[in-house]
C-alpha cells in the first residue's frame, strides 16, 4: 500500500518521456523513470521514496529491443532479467541476472532497473562491467553511447532526465571463458540455484586473452570493477596465492560490515572465492 499519490505516465517515445520529465520536474513533482517498478513500489511503501510522478518507459521501442547485429548484442533497458536470462544471448549476464531476487521477481525487474537500483548489490552490473559493455543514454543532446566503465562509479552517473536506453556488448566477449559465483549468508551455496538473498560476496570474471577481468559485489557498498585490483591480480610476476592473500589491501573502499556478514568474514569468503574462480579459469 503506497500511502501517497503519484501520477503515472506511459510515453511511447524517448522524446516524449524526456519532455514529460522536464515538465514534471519543473512542477516540483520529482518524477522518476519507471521500468519494472519493483523498487519504486517497495521503497514508496516504506516512505523511502516519494515520487509525485512516475514515467513508465516500458512502451518505448528502443528500450525494449533485444538483437544481435554487426557483431554487437543490443539489450533494451526495459528487458526483464528473465527475458535476458532465458534468451541466453550472453551466458555470463544470464548467470548474474539469474541471481537477482527470485524468478518471479525477475519477470518484472528490468536490466535498466537493476543498473540504476539503490540497493548496494546490483548483480547484473557485474557481467556488464567485466565485458566492457557500452551504455546508450538518452539526454538533452539526444542519444549518446559511452563505455559503462566510464560512467559507472559506485552508481550509474546520470544527469537528471537522462534515460538508460540500451546496453551494447561486443559479441566476441560473450564467447570467451567466464565464471561467476555468489555466496549468501545462509550455508547452501552448493546448489547453483540457491541464491536468493543478498550476497556476502559475488564475483563475475571473464578471461580475455591472458587477462582476467573481475567485478565484485557484496565486498564494498557498491558493485565495482577496479583497475587497481585487476592489474594487481593480473600481475604475472606474483603467484596467485600471494596476490589473493593481499587483495584486500587493494580494494577501492572498506569491506562491508553488516548483519549479512562481518568485514572479516567477507574477506575470508572473497579470498576463497577468488581462489576458486582462478582455479576454474586458469586451471
Amino acid at each position: 500500500m503506497i500511502p501517497f499519490d503519484f501520477a503515472y505516465y506511459q510515453p511511447s517515445s524517448l522524446a516524449e518521456a524526456g519532455g514529460l520529465f522536464a515538465e514534471l520536474a519543473a512542477q516540483g513533482k520529482e518524477p522518476m523513470y519507471y521500468a519494472g517498478g519493483t523498487e519504486i513500489i517497495s521503497f514508496s511503501r516504506l516512505y523511502q521514496l516519494f515520487p509525485r510522478a512516475v514515467i513508465d518507459i516500458k512502451k518505448i521501442a528502443e528500450c525494449n529491443m533485444l538483437e544481435q547485429k554487426n557483431g554487437k548484442l543490443v539489450i533494451g533497458a526495459a528487458k526483464t532479467l528473465s527475458q535476458i536470462q532465458e534468451s541466453n544471448v550472453f551466458p555470463l549476464l544470464s548467470w548474474c541476472s539469474g541471481r537477482v531476487a527470485d524468478h518471479t521477481m525477475r519477470n518484472k525487474i528490468t536490466l535498466g532497473g537493476n543498473i540504476c537500483s539503490r540497493i548496494p548489490y546490483r548483480e547484473a552490473v557485474l557481467a556488464l562491467l567485466v565485458s566492457d559493455s557500452e551504455i546508450i543514454i538518452w539526454g538533452k543532446q539526444g542519444l549518446k553511447k559511452v563505455g559503462l566503465n566510464q560512467v559507472f562509479h559506485q552508481t550509474l552517473l546520470l544527469e537528471p532526465g537522462e534515460i538508460v536506453v540500451q546496453l551494447v556488448i561486443d559479441q566476441e566477449v560473450t564467447r570467451v571463458p567466464f565464471t561467476s559465483t555468489k555466496q549468501t549468508m545462509d550455508g547452501l551455496v552448493h546448489y547453483p540455484q540457491d541464491r536468493i538473498g543478498y550476497p556476502v560476496v559475488s564475483i563475475a570474471a571473464l578471461k580475455k586473452k591472458n587477462q582476467i577481468n573481475f567485478a565484485f559485489s557484496g565486498v564494498c557498498s557498491f558493485p565495482f570493477r577496479s583497475t587497481e585490483v585487476e592489474s594487481f591480480l593480473n600481475n604475472p610476476s606474483l603467484p596467485w596465492d600471494e596476490k589473493i592473500h593481499q587483495v584486500a589491501e587493494k580494494l577501492p573502499a572498506e569491506i562491508i560490515n553488516d548483519m549479512e556478514g562481518s568485514a572479516d568474514y567477507r574477506e575470508f569468503v572473497l579470498k576463497n572465492m577468488l581462489s576458486d574462480i582462478v582455479k576454474r579459469l586458469e586451471g
Binding site: 503515472y8 517497495s42 524468478h103 518471479t104 519477470n107 518484472k108
Partner: peptide
C-alpha cells in the same frame, strides 16, 4: 501467462 507478484505491480 507469466507469474508476477501483484504486490509489486501497479
Amino acid at each position: 501467462g507469466q507469474p508476477i507478484k501483484s504486490c509489486l505491480m501497479l
